[in-house]
Simulated scan of single mutants.
Amino acid sequence: MFALTPAAAEQIARAADEQPDAGPQPMLRVAAKIDESDGELVYGMGFDDEREDDLVVDAGGVPILISPHSQPLLENTTLDFAEVAPGEFQFIFRGGCNAPASKQGCGGCGGGCS
């Protein structure tokens, strides 16, 4: 199951409130893929519309969209918003890394797995 820390949920809710009012509450899409060039697990996220086969996860009151392709790669992953250097905060993906052992790696979105 994919999860958010309270800090990440708060930051995402804040960003959703800043989105242009074009309809219902923005939903955050979280994605993961294995980079074919180096086998690194790469993460991405952004506000998007729900698609037919998406898994919708309520994580701390924040609706998260995950495509079928990303679901196994995001299993047991937690998205955090943490201080990575004094005064510098970033989203960080923790845990998970359900890529095949030969393809494990972490990165993207200013974070990675721990």
Rank of each mutant, 00 (worst) to 15 (best):
P63D: 09
D80F: 02
A22E: 15
T5D: 03
L74Y: 06
I66H: 02
D35H: 00
Q19P: 07
A82M: 10
L65V: 07
V56R: 05
D35I: 02
T78W: 00
P68D: 13
L74F: 05
A82D: 15
D53A: 15
G108Y: 04
A31F: 04
G87I: 13
L79P: 00
R14H: 12
C97M: 11
M45H: 13
F81E: 08
G112V: 02
S70N: 08
H69A: 11
L65S: 05
S102V: 11
L65H: 01
N76K: 00
E40W: 05
R94K: 14
A7Q: 05
P100D: 14
L41I: 10
I12E: 13
D58E: 13
P20S: 12
E75K: 12
D21W: 10
F89G: 07
I92C: 08
K103C: 06
L73M: 03
I66F: 04
G95M: 10
L41D: 14
D17H: 00
F93N: 02
V42I: 12
S70A: 14
M1S: 10
P6A: 06
Q11R: 15
S67R: 02
A22L: 11
A22Q: 14
D80G: 04
Q104V: 13
A3H: 09
N76V: 00
G61N: 09
